[in-house]
């Protein structure tokens, strides 16, 4: 039997890295989306507060 186990070990390692890496990219993109949503919500709240603020009365 030929001694070529290294090729199948490399193939298995490569596929595991590929699939796990892809799953990780989904997770990273999801986190970035959550941060973006949080920023947008903060900006919306700030704009709302600015609109509803009572202007200072003139002397």
């Amino acid at each position: 039997m030929p001694d070529n186990a290294i090729y199948y070990q490399m193939a298995y390692a490569a596929t595991i890295v590929l699939y796990a890496g892809y799953a990780l990219t989904i997770r990273i993109r999801r986190r970035a989306l959550e941060r973006r949503a949080a920023r947008a919500a903060r900006a919306a709240r700030a704009a709302q507060a600015e609109r509803t603020a009572v202007p200072p009365s003139s002397p």
Binding site: P2, N4, Y7, Y8, A11, Y12
Partner: peptide, 16 residues
């Protein structure tokens, strides 16, 4: 088990 003629490389079949 590995295949007799191809050896362990045949196991690539199960992911390929």
């Amino acid at each position: 088990p590995p295949e007799m003629l191809q050896g362990y490389a045949q196991k690539i079949l199960y992911v390929h």
